[in-house]
């Protein structure tokens, strides 16, 4: 409001009260806005905060949780190396699962009916078998096929090996996890690919771009937008899903934790050790997912939304600017 150049209002509403500004519609922009007060929201938030504080207090003070046991084990060598194995299983199963899944997705999308049918059947079977059943099956594979060989189909075998030597327990777990994951990954990738506008392939074909390059450079990067959110879910699911391989006595996180509390009886704190690690790893994956998704969103929006970091920086800058604005208004010498 221009304080000095304001012309005196001609009509003040016929009252004698001089500063009745609200009667002048031209000055609306100068008025102070009072936001709606949401008392219900404040009450609900307060109630939830009290309950949460009570729960947190219980976690810290109730001796049942045995936090000293938790502290003793959470970074112990056994647990950390078990976490390493969990991560390895997750990483390999993700890479193998999504590699095979991508191949299966393009088999299903191909014009070749044999490839389509085989991919369809694979997905059907591996989605039908519970992972744990499959894992135990691979674990017992050597009982079924004692030797695996390379040779001409239905003909002579040139090279063979004892299947237990070749696969081993961890190998069996990895095969089980990957084959299971591939069936789901195939559908995720296929969903991403069919979400890409057909005109994109047509434009690429019209330019004479080779087929493989059309897929790698034009289709897949755009499909990633649809693939990533679901794939992130799957990878996080897989991270926790690796805990079922404890049935094969593989020393990943959950198995090690069970071994330890089987020995010392401190069940709750050791389960908390496993929980803390799973939560931590999931959080890391979620953050990674956010940034990977952002990368593949390039070009999708006119102006990409800011990252949380940028937003925090902006908010800080605004706060500082706000403080600078109000600084002259507050009288100096307020030091008590």
């Amino acid at each position: 409001m221009g304080l000095t150049t304001d012309p005196a209002p001609l009509d003040t509403g016929g009252t004698d009260l001089a500063p009745r500004k609200e009667a002048d519609p031209g000055d609306l922009a100068a008025l102070r806005v009072v936001p709606t007060r949401h008392y219900g929201r404040w009450a609900a938030a307060l109630a939830v905060l009290v309950l949460t504080a009570q729960f947190a207090h219980g976690l810290v003070t109730n001796p049942v949780w045995e936090w000293e046991v938790f502290r003793a084990y959470v970074l112990s060598e056994t647990i950390v190396s078990a976490v390493g194995l969990t991560l390895q299983l997750t990483a390999y199963a993700t890479v193998l699962g999504f590699a095979l899944g991508t191949v299966l997705a393009f088999m299903r999308l191909s014009r070749n009916p044999v490839l389509q049918t085989v991919a369809w059947a694979y997905i059907w079977i591996f989605r039908s078998i519970p992972m744990i059943v499959q894992l135990v099956f691979w674990f017992n594979l050597s009982a079924l096929y004692e030797r695996l060989g390379l040779g001409i189909p239905f003909g002579p075998v040139f090279w063979s090996v004892d299947s237990n030597d070749l696969i081993g327990t961890i190998g069996a777990a990895l095969i089980g996890l990957s084959l299971h994951q591939a069936a789901y990954a195939a559908e995720i990738v296929r969903g991403g690919v069919i979400s890409v506008d057909h005109g994109q392939l047509e434009a690429a074909a019209a330019l004479g771009i080779p087929r493989l390059r059309q897929i790698r450079r034009i289709v897949l990067p755009q499909a990633m937008r649809a693939i990533l959110p679901t794939a992130g879910n799957e990878i996080i699911g897989l991270l926790k899903g690796t805990s079922v391989v404890y049935v094969m006595a593989i020393g990943e996180l959950f198995y090690q934790v069970q071994v330890i509390y089987g020995r010392n009886g401190h069940v709750i704190p050791l389960l908390m050790v496993a929980t803390a690690w799973y939560v931590f790893l999931t959080s890391v994956l979620s953050v990674a997912q956010y940034y990977v998704e952002r990368r593949f969103a390039r070009g999708a929006n006119r102006t990409p939304p800011p990252t949380p970091l940028q937003r925090a920086r902006d908010a800080l800058a605004r706060l500082r600017a706000g403080a600078a604005d109000t600084a002259p208004a507050t009288p100096r010498g307020g030091t008590a």
Binding site: D197, G199, Q200, E202, A203, A204, A205, A206, L207, G208, I209, P210, R211, I218, P221, Q222, F296, R298, G299, A300
Partner: peptide, 25 residues
């Protein structure tokens, strides 16, 4: 297909709805 793709490089095509690749500059 490979030979057809090569032939297409002799023919430029401009679509009604552009069909630019949105993820590339």
């Amino acid at each position: 297909e490979r030979d057809i793709l090569r032939q297409r490089t002799h023919i430029g095509f401009v679509f009604q709805h552009f069909h630019l690749f949105p993820h590339l500059t």
